[in-house]
């Protein structure tokens, strides 16, 4: 067993599952958004705002954001462990990535529920 500390689950199986489940959620969310845009050709701000005012849409969006964050983390963690062999550079890059994901996630929540 290869030990590692920088990925969250410390399990390839959970990472693998997370990657696939989050992919499905993101696919559904994308389909929904694309479908919505197609069904509303003359979309204006009020309609768009109205959509995101509904609780179910906020929950669905939040789920998509969390999925995106998890998906990005697992994917980028894998890429960095593949290509960045010097430990210092790898840990630094991973730190930047995790901070960025955190910021984007919090920012996204704020957009959804904020003023």
């Amino acid at each position: 067993m290869v030990t590692n500390v920088t990925n969250f689950g410390r399990s390839g199986l959970s990472d693998w599952l997370v990657q696939r489940v989050s992919a499905i959620i993101l696919a559904l969310y994308s389909l929904f958004i694309v479908g919505y845009l197609l069904l509303h050709p003359g979309l204006d701000y009020m309609t768009w705002n109205g959509l995101f005012a509904q609780t179910w849409m906020r929950i669905f969006s939040l789920l998509a954001f969390v999925s995106l964050a998890a998906h990005a983390w697992v994917g980028l963690w894998t890429v960095t462990t593949d290509y960045l062999k010097p430990t210092g550079i790898r840990i630094a890059t991973q730190t930047v990535i995790i901070l960025a994901i955190f910021v984007f996630l919090v920012w996204g929540i704020q957009v959804l529920w904020g003023a």
Binding site: N4, R10, S11, G12, T78
Partner: peptide, 12 residues
């Protein structure tokens, strides 16, 4: 299986 479930051994 326990030896293989980390992120590298199989899942790479």
């Amino acid at each position: 299986l326990a030896e293989l479930e980390d992120p590298f051994s199989v899942f790479r």
